[in-house]
Design a protein around this nucleic acid. Structure first.
Lengths: 109, 109
DNA sequence: CCGTCATTTCGATCGTCATCAATACGATAA
DNA sequence: TTATCGTATTGATGACGATCGAAATGACGG
């Protein structure tokens, strides 16, 4: 029912409800959350995170969008630091940056 | 440097990177994150959360937006379940729903 | 070097969002 | 009830985001 989690402290000590959030930190956090706040992008993160990694070639069918649209969403996730991209031959593979997600959580809670 | 956190499990056991996220849960999470993913709304949550509570009358000056714009943002936060509204005489007071924030975190990490 | 295949970028369109002034609503005090 | 003050809603406008088809880029294999 409960579990214990060890987590690194937020290096900037900025936290949404217990310490003042700087202008810059607010903008940064808003940007990352915006990248995450879309059903298709959440689904991509979910697929990749659950499987450990994922090939871009499989995503259009998985999320029901064109390849161009998927590429657009992947770019946003990479730019937000949530996904990491790796080229393997012709194919682009993606992984979730778990530390980045943990960092986001540590700023919210 | 590290700290231990006891946390309630996500009642739906849906978690972004370790279990399949349902269509509905994805839409729901995207909606809440969208409500949070704006600099002005983050600042409102930060102000209210840090102080414990806050009066709507103080926010326009605090965030540098008109009363109408602030009211619009507050509504979104309330509808997302992040803020709770309470009428005290003429004034509207707001509090952060910490459990709701924890719930969001538990779905991300 | 070509040709092919995977992926990204471009350009256009359409819908949604942020913002504010003006107005309406709601609560209190006179 | 009426006046007043705080807050919410409306309506309009400009900015931004999602989407896709088409064209460009990049990575192989021959």
């Amino acid at each position: 029912m409960f579990r214990m989690i060890a987590r690194m402290e937020n290096p900037h000590s900025e936290q949404l409800t217990s310490s003042m959030l700087s202008e810059a930190a607010g903008e940064e956090l808003a940007g990352v959350l915006k990248a995450l706040a879309h059903p298709v992008r959440l689904k991509l993160v979910n697929i990749i995170g659950t499987a450990g990694e994922g090939c871009a070639c499989d995503f259009p069918a998985a999320v029901g969008k064109t390849q161009a649209t998927v590429s657009h969403h992947l770019k946003q996730l990479v730019e937000a630091g949530i996904l990491q991209r790796e080229q393997r031959g012709k194919w682009a593979w993606f992984q979730v940056d778990q530390d980045r997600l943990a960092e986001i959580c540590s700023m919210i809670c």
